[in-house]
Nucleic acid binder design. Structure first.
Length: 510
DNA sequence: AAAAAAT
């Protein structure tokens, strides 16, 4: 008999766990499951890779199954929100596994794919719905879904979901949920200010914390190499080449600060003969899915990502995490390196730190209370670097596209309608390129774009950036206080000159 | 300052 049985989980759930080969509950599961079975609200803080998904899934499934309800049209009994599409899909997959012996439907909805099919699937209602915020609200606005019968509300990566960019959507969703419900918030990091903000969504929560706030996974060996920005690319290429040659590297995840940066790194690695793919928010959903899948399956050993992949993504065999640039939010470092050393494995995290990034490194070391060891440059670095081939040039037309996009994002917001429908409904995952080049999304000059959802995203962003970024409005929403603990930022219209002099002081008051 | 998330 498994130790999960002692927690009081129902037999069909125990059998599903057996199938998966799970015997021992992790610490967060051991602490969270009894409280959740009682119906308590919960604030769960745990390192990555500690089984958070099961911690909220198992007791929730148990409670839903213990109180069976006929399915109600356009409603869900349990709602799970995730900050990225990939994470939502992963959570839904896991939950389907846990629910396999129960008569319980699990569905997942997110943007970047046709909405029609999703809306139709919701017509009879589902038991468990995993979603990203934008598409969820879209479906609600279309009357494809109501939340009036939702019994359990789960917020994964809760700290990120309460960040400026998400808080609006979150508040809307929370207002649509019944007052009496069970709410569960999970995250690996939970800054105090965010935790306070969360209290308006959650009632007298049990607080479960299995590791000190913001600690990094123990089994990750962490290193930092001090290097100029201009030399980072050569260093990354040489390091990965050597690690691949010596078979030390199974899979490597490389984090960059920007989407363009991720593409640039991929071009450099590719021209050096290293198979790498990029995943970031400017890629079409099909490209994102394909890149992650190739990385999972092992056909592509190097995935270059923005922070889109920093959280939650669970790929086994990630032996190395490279921080090509250091994250400026120190919590993000914890999430990033948590992509390695998952489920008992070891991992190595190597960060490249340019002179101007040293303050970030300091913040990270302060947060994690770890002094990160220095890793020197490889032997003959300069000579070896000089031998590397020049990267394939980014096509000039892409540069033009980028400039035009920037202009569009500043100016007219009125494109929206052009991006409709593009015949995607029946189409499966692959071959989405032809779609991007097909029905829609040519530039104004009619040239097809490399990436389909970008333009819409930009416009949408421009349209709602004003209110979301407005600290005055934020303060109002938060009851008169800036909840993030930062000094209010001055609202500045796009394109207006900034206040660069404060750059460093603003970042961290304490 | 960047990234993510709807069309």
């Amino acid at each position: 008999m498994s130790f999960f049985a002692e927690l009081g989980l129902a037999e069909p759930i125990l059998r599903a766990l057996e199938t998966k080969g799970y015997n021992d509950p992790t610490p967060i599961q051991r602490q969270a499951i009894p409280a959740l079975l009682q119906g308590r609200d919960l604030l769960g803080i745990a390192q990555t890779g500690t089984g958070k998904t099961a911690a909220f899934s198992l007791p929730s499934l148990h409670r839903l199954a213990a109180n069976p309800q006929p399915r109600k049209p356009a409603s869900c009994r349990m709602l799970v929100l995730s900050p990225t599409r990939e994470l939502a899909a992963q959570i839904a997959d896991n939950m389907k596994g846990y629910a396999r012996n129960l008569n319980m439907s699990v569905d997942c909805v997110f943007g970047g794919v046709p909405v029609g099919k999703q809306a139709r699937r919701l017509v009879p209602g589902v038991d468990i719905l995993v979603a990203t915020p934008g598409r969820l609200l879209d479906l609600i606005d279309q009357r494809a879904l109501t939340l009036g019968r939702t019994e359990i509300f789960v917020l994964d990566e809760a700290d990120q979901m309460m960040d400026l960019g998400f808080i609006h959507a979150l508040k809307r969703v929370a207002n649509l949920l019944p007052k009496t419900r069970q709410s569960l918030f999970f995250s690996a990091t939970m800054p105090k200010a965010i935790e306070d903000l969360g209290k308006q969504f959650i009632v007298n929560p049990v607080r479960v914390e299995v590791a000190p706030n913001s600690t990094t996974a123990e089994r990750v060996e962490q290193y930092v190499t001090f290097i100029n920005q201009a030399e980072k690319q050569a260093l990354l290429t040489l390091r990965i080449r050597a690690l691949l040659a010596s078979k030390e590297l199974d899979r490597a995840l490389v984090f960059t600060r920007t989407k363009h940066g991720a593409d640039r790194v991929v071009r450099h690695l590719s021209s050096a003969g290293i198979d790498a793919r990029a995943i970031h928010g400017n890629k079409s959903q099909a490209q994102r899915t394909a890149a992650l899948e190739a990385f999972r399956q092992g056909s592509c050993p190097v995935l270059v990502a923005t922070d889109i992949a920093a959280r939650g993504i669970d790929v086994s065999g990630v032996s190395h995490v490279f921080n090509f640039e250091l994250p400026n939010v120190p919590e993000q470092y914890v999430h990033r390196i948590g992509r390695t050393a998952r489920a008992g494995a070891d991992g190595i995290a190597i960060s490249f730190c340019a002179p101007d990034e040293k303050p970030y490194l300091k913040d990270i070391e302060k947060l994690t209370r770890v002094k990160i060891d220095t890793m020197g440059l490889p032997e003959n670095f300069m000579a070896e670097a000089a031998k590397l081939p020049a990267p394939s040039r980014k096509p000039a037309e892409m540069e033009q596209d980028a400039r035009r996009d920037a202009r569009d994002a500043r100016g007219n917001g009125g494109r929206g309608a052009g991006g409709q429908g593009r015949g995607g409904e029946g189409r499966g995952g692959q071959n989405r390129n032809s779609q991007a080049h097909g029905g829609r999304a040519q530039g104004r000059d009619g040239r097809p774009r490399d990436v389909s959802p970008r333009q819409e995203r930009r416009d949408g962003g421009a349209a709602d950036r004003g209110p979301v970024r407005n600290p005055v409005l934020e303060a109002t929403l938060n009851g008169g206080e800036r909840e993030d603990g930062n000094k209010p930022r001055r609202f500045r219209p796009r394109g207006a000159p900034g206040v660069g002099a404060h750059k460093h002081k603003v970042r961290r008051a304490s």
